[in-house]
Design a protein around this nucleic acid. Structure first.
Lengths: 217, 217
DNA sequence: GTTTGTGAAGGATTTCACAGCA
DNA sequence: TGCTGTGAAATCCTTCACAAAC
């Protein structure tokens, strides 16, 4: 079973494209954007490989799962390839997200300026505590978790971002699943159980550090 | 980026233990801690597998790279196994870390309460801006990046945490490498180039989201 | 009876190497 | 000539299945 860098094992879903390949696609998009804004029009798998410290063959093979985007003897058109990859990943539209947990971390997440430019729009904020529900934080009126299902439907929310303390995280994730959410980004330091068909990614700096120390001890 | 999370690709290092295995070890440590504080004394690979949604065989194989920690017919002693794994990972000591970049993100990182209990001690804070250097933030007197090498040696800093804007990140990472740092946790949204022998992990929630949307589009 | 540890088998992913095209 | 796209080979990782241990 697959495990992202950080953590978060997660279930196999549809399609015959390996999960690892899907996870590399956003990297390609990112460097293509860089090259594009540096004015470069064409790029080879060799150049991409150098930039990402991976083999050109792997890049070509990855891309070949989705089509034939290059021209022999020349390489890939930077703008075209970026646009194709964005479309494959579903990044040619915006996605609404709800943040659950309005403590220190949740506040940082709702005010993080990196999501919106990439098309991820935080649309609602939730918390369990009566002290916070109803207050306005970073422009969001904080809602009770009991409102989750209703709001998810009304605002067409597709992504749940979990920023609650670890001892409530599994419960909140259950609520998200119950509300019909299929994609969850989890900041709490645990490996939650999710049913098949729900995609879970974890953000856990401690886990990353804990595997690095193996190599330096 | 492999990560990590979602992400963070990174170079092959010493040892014959697969990198993926090393990355799972912290997960085992984490659930063992949970079971231990729930009072459970013995655990089977079956139970661990259920908890982490992976096969018992994989857990046994992973552990077998490092020794024979279980007892047939019984399972693993929770406390003993946790302690062995911590020792293997180098988690039976503390590690000093420097945070570079004292903007919004860097401030959140230095005041994040999740590092110290796991033995990761933020010991110094750096920034490039003259407006901030010399000021005290969260108890740290912010130092100039020109002080990096000196401070890394003086305070025995082994880990660099990069929280600078993306357009300075590669430069700062070069400085860290130059200062002798071998482990870098990168919060900036790019895939930096690092020489062999330097371990890099990336924390990038956007990258995680961008690979999730593939499955929901 | 239960569960580990592990060779061997099976599957998945990466790399090779080259035909084919611009 | 230069570089892609891709079967085939090589490598890496996971799962199987069972002997050994408790």
């Amino acid at each position: 079973m697959a495990n992202s860098n950080n953590n978060s094992g997660n279930p196999i879903l549809e399609s015959d494209v390996p999960e690892v390949v899907i996870q590399r696609l956003p990297l390609y998009v990112r460097v293509l954007t860089q090259f594009s804004s540096a004015g470069q029009e064409v790029i080879s798998s060799e150049q991409l490989g150098t930039r990402l410290q991976m083999t050109p063959a792997q890049i070509r093979k990855d891309l070949s799962y989705f089509g034939r985007f290059g021209k022999q003897g020349r390489g890939y058109d930077v703008v075209v390839l970026e646009s194709k990859l964005r479309s494959i990943l579903g990044l040619d539209r915006t996605w609404n997200a709800a943040v659950i947990g309005m403590g220190r971390l949740g506040r940082a997440v709702v005010s993080y300026p990196g999501f919106a430019p990439e098309g991820f729009i935080v649309t609602a904020a939730f918390d369990a505590s009566d002290d916070i529900v109803g207050k306005t934080i970073s422009g969001f009126e904080v809602q009770s978790i009991s409102q989750l299902k209703k709001t998810v439907v009304e605002l067409d929310i597709k992504i749940g971002i979990v920023a609650v303390p670890v001892d409530h995280a599994q419960e909140v994730i259950n609520d998200l699943v119950e509300a019909g959410i299929k994609s969850i980004l989890n900041y709490a330091p645990l490996s939650p159980l999710v049913p098949d068909g729900v995609i879970l990614r974890g953000i856990d700096p401690v886990l990353s550090l804990q595997s690095m120390t193996y190599y330096i001890s």
